[in-house]
Computed example of a mutant assay.
Amino acid sequence: MSEFRIGERLIGREAPPFIIAEMSGNHNQSLERAFAIVEAAAAAGAHAIKLQTYTADTMTLDLDEGEFHVSDPNSLWQGTSLYRLYEQAYTPWEWHEPLFARAAELGLLAFSTPFDASAVDFLERLSVPAYKIASFENTDLPLIARVAATGKPLIISTGMASIAELDAAVTTARQAGCQDLVLLKCTSTYPASAADSHLRTLPHLRDLFGCEVGLSDHTGGIGAAVAAVALGATVIEKHFTLDRADGGVDAAFSLEPDELRSLVTETERAWQALGGIRYGVQAAERPSLQFRRSLYVVKDLGAGEILTPGHVRSIRPGLGLAPAHLDEVIGRRARQAIPRGTPLAWSLLQ
């Protein structure tokens, strides 16, 4: 069994999917907005709020040339430098503790993605219940080892990683002490297309590494997440904002509150619908048996009269003999007078 708990929350196929609302940079450098995002996530029914813990200086160099300048015309962040992007997106470290406290008041689990060892040290002082490794860091084996050494549950996004790279990440995590692991299928484009999601990877990922699996989803809407649950995802992570129209570094691929509420509802409904392998009549279906077809007398019969095709039809409701017996009853004699509208039974026939 690969299931485990984050706080009091069970992570595994015997529980509804664990829904993480990723704040990322959607606070737009406003602590008041950050609090509002936490509160909206709780009101929408999310199970956890996640931050990202870094500074521009722990991520990159303050340069705006060559590879340090975002020049891809298809990027949401084209025209800026990596350093300025991270300055805009980062969550001030002094915000973490009050945001985590507010989440706890609202019944939300709260944790973060660290991007270097100093962030792990900081988050350990805040007693986070779990850690997340971002896709771009899934080849940073020293960071994975440092996080795994805490012994806390570890969630790793798999974006862009080959099987060999994932094997190295998982092996490193386990050797460093990680017992509870989730691998999130992820497409590292922002936003991502449904066609690039390849959710059929999920059961293969679970079989390969013997751990829980989920989806870090950058597509629009909730369709991919619901499909992922049907394929075995037990964790769903989506970026979350108050209103995409407010802008921000991640707003374009983030859910709004009503969408997050739908995500929580529909992924749990998908999980409930999976059930097990089942045939035959379920307890809830028993009242519906009456709506099957069965054999009824549709023309008055006298005692001793021979049944013809004109006397018997297969109709609803289902209180008579099964339609399969039609050929067996034709040609038999009525044991007694049988009025039209009587469900046919063997006891009525000679």
Rank of each mutant, 00 (worst) to 15 (best):
M1R: 14
M1I: 10
R13W: 13
I19K: 09
I20V: 15
I20E: 00
S24F: 03
G25C: 10
H27A: 12
E32L: 15
F35W: 14
I37Q: 02
A40L: 02
A42T: 12
A42Q: 08
G45V: 03
A46R: 06
H47M: 04
D57A: 14
T58M: 13
L61H: 09
E65C: 06
V70I: 15
D72Q: 08
P73A: 15
P73G: 12
L76N: 09
L76F: 07
L76I: 07
G79P: 04
Y90G: 01
A101H: 10
A104G: 15
E105N: 04
T113S: 13
A117W: 08
D121I: 01
F122Y: 15
L123W: 11
A130G: 05
L141P: 00
T150F: 00
P153S: 08
L154Q: 04
L166G: 04
A168S: 01
T171L: 07
Q175K: 07
Q179W: 07
L184D: 05
L184M: 14
C186T: 04
T187Y: 05
A192E: 09
A194I: 11
L202D: 00
L215I: 11
D217N: 01
G220N: 07
G221R: 06
L231Q: 03
V235L: 05
I236W: 06
F240D: 02
T241E: 01
T241P: 00
L242A: 02
L242T: 00
A251T: 04
S254D: 06
L255T: 04
L255P: 00
E256V: 04
P257F: 12
E259H: 02
L260T: 07
T267N: 05
A270E: 09
W271V: 04
G275M: 10
G275C: 07
R278M: 08
Y279K: 15
Q282R: 13
E285V: 04
E285C: 11
Y296T: 11
V297Y: 04
V298I: 15
V298T: 03
K299R: 15
L301F: 03
L301D: 06
G302H: 14
E305I: 04
T308P: 02
S314T: 09
A324F: 09
H325W: 12
D327V: 10
R333P: 01
A334Y: 05
R340H: 08
R340C: 14
R340S: 13
T342K: 08
P343K: 05
W346E: 13
S347C: 14
